[in-house]
Design a protein around this nucleic acid. Structure first.
Lengths: 244, 244
DNA sequence: GGAGCCCTTTGATCCACATCAATACGATTA
DNA sequence: TAATCGTATTGATGTGGATCAAAGGGCTCC
């Protein structure tokens, strides 16, 4: 039976035109004909096992990557060993934009679970986006969104206290899970307390204590990496009503 | 005498092709013919007085801006009044990239001194960069550079101590002044201690104390906003040799 | 299915930076 | 030259989160 299915069908199954993430990803706003053009460009897919690098800081930049399945973290490491997680990425999000500026990657991208990415050769993407206006615009939006996100993280790191940071983090995850059709209130963290802490500029013990505090106050139910948000407005209140 | 000069000459004087910042700015890598095309696109210039806004968070996005003279800060403000400076920009740098993602600006841009910017209507920039490959590529590099810079700030805010942050800040300024043909070791700060503190995630008193400490140790000579770097290697050492 | 290891939680103590407070400086204007 | 105001410095004290420490829990990989 299976051998009767032509190989091309399997190919189409993994194309942008058939991908259920297309509304979040590069194809957003493209018409069907344009998506087909994009399909031709997305050459290959790559599977990355948990804990393995998609790319490393210093490697030469050739392509950007759209996450098809799984999730990643990006981090920057200083000579003395200190490292900072700069982001967590999930399906439909794009990795590798940091590499455009110097033709070399400036951070590491590591899979948090077994994952798969679509490889988008950058020079070909530039070529096609010179022809397809909507692709060009969507790509610019994706880069700009990354800049806006980074400003949010700066705000978080520069002016918020520990519990506010964690609340903001959970609300952000909730919103991104929702956009992917998952529950807004119940999800599984793919990263450790240490990684969350690095991202939020806190130590893992502080993250753990903040989780415990949220649990005591009935804001969330925490069981290891399984999170249930019980009081979204309560978490939001934590963010805005900063009692000086 | 002056009246004999045709008006067009004054126009040309302020065009990209004649601008001494072109190696830092959008025209970088373009050939003379392409720069002329860019000239036509850069419609107008705008003067912004000290302390005035170039744009505000929430305003609709129409154009990006290249700084021709002066300097700016960008900041994000929360409802409860807390604000975070997300960057300081100087000549040749581009402002407004945050607005592409939602068609609305997501931060404020405020002049630190009397300044002038070139207004670059964004839809026309996209149009021209579909025709001019080198412009497209340079624009992508500028956006990517902003992302890389933001990651550096995250590292700074998330994993460095107060004096390291200030050292990194001074070295960064020094390098940018150098790129503009100014002294690497002697310059005038355009921003207050409070603004530096907001950018670095510190209080103004902490910034002031760190300056005093650097002075005691002979790393810099500080007199209000006038800075003389006396020991660049010393500052760099402060960054890398993090004694745990 | 069990051994080992990593991850998480929780408590006790410490310290870097915040906060509070007062003074001093410099630029601007009268 | 004095008055005013925003900015900067410096000192005293407080505190949120870091650090140190130990025990418990749950994956992962044989």
């Amino acid at each position: 039976m299976n051998s009767a299915i032509p190989a091309t069908i399997i190919e189409i199954k993994t194309a942008c035109s058939q991908c259920n993430l297309r509304e979040l990803c590069l194809p957003f706003g493209l018409d069907p004909r344009e998506i087909n053009q994009l399909d031709e460009l997305v050459g290959s897919r790559r599977k990355i096992k948990r804990q393995q690098h998609l790319y490393r800081s210093g490697e030469s930049f050739e392509a950007i990557y759209a996450i098809r399945a799984g999730s990643f973290k990006t981090d920057v490491i200083l000579e003395d060993g200190r490292d900072q997680v700069t982001g967590f990425q999930m399906t439909g999000e794009v990795l590798g934009l940091d590499g455009i500026s110097t033709e070399h990657h400036s951070c590491n991208a590591i899979a948090l679970e077994d994952s798969e990415v679509c490889v988008i050769p950058f020079s070909r993407l530039e070529e096609l986006s010179r022809q397809v206006e909507s692709l060009q615009h969507q790509f610019h939006k994706i880069m700009s969104r990354e800049i806006v996100r980074d400003h949010g993280v700066m705000m978080l790191l520069g002016s918020m206290r520990a519990e506010e940071r964690l609340a903001a983090f959970l609300l952000n995850l909730s919103q991104r899970f929702t956009a992917r059709g998952f529950s807004p209130s119940e999800f599984h963290l793919r990263m450790t307390r240490d990684e969350i802490g690095s991202y939020l500029g806190l130590k893992l013990e502080t993250v753990s204590r903040a989780f415990s505090r949220f649990q005591e106050e009935g804001l969330v139910a925490v069981q290891q990496k399984h999170i249930r948000i019980l009081d979204t407005p309560g978490l939001k209140r934590l963010l805005n009503h900063h009692t000086i």
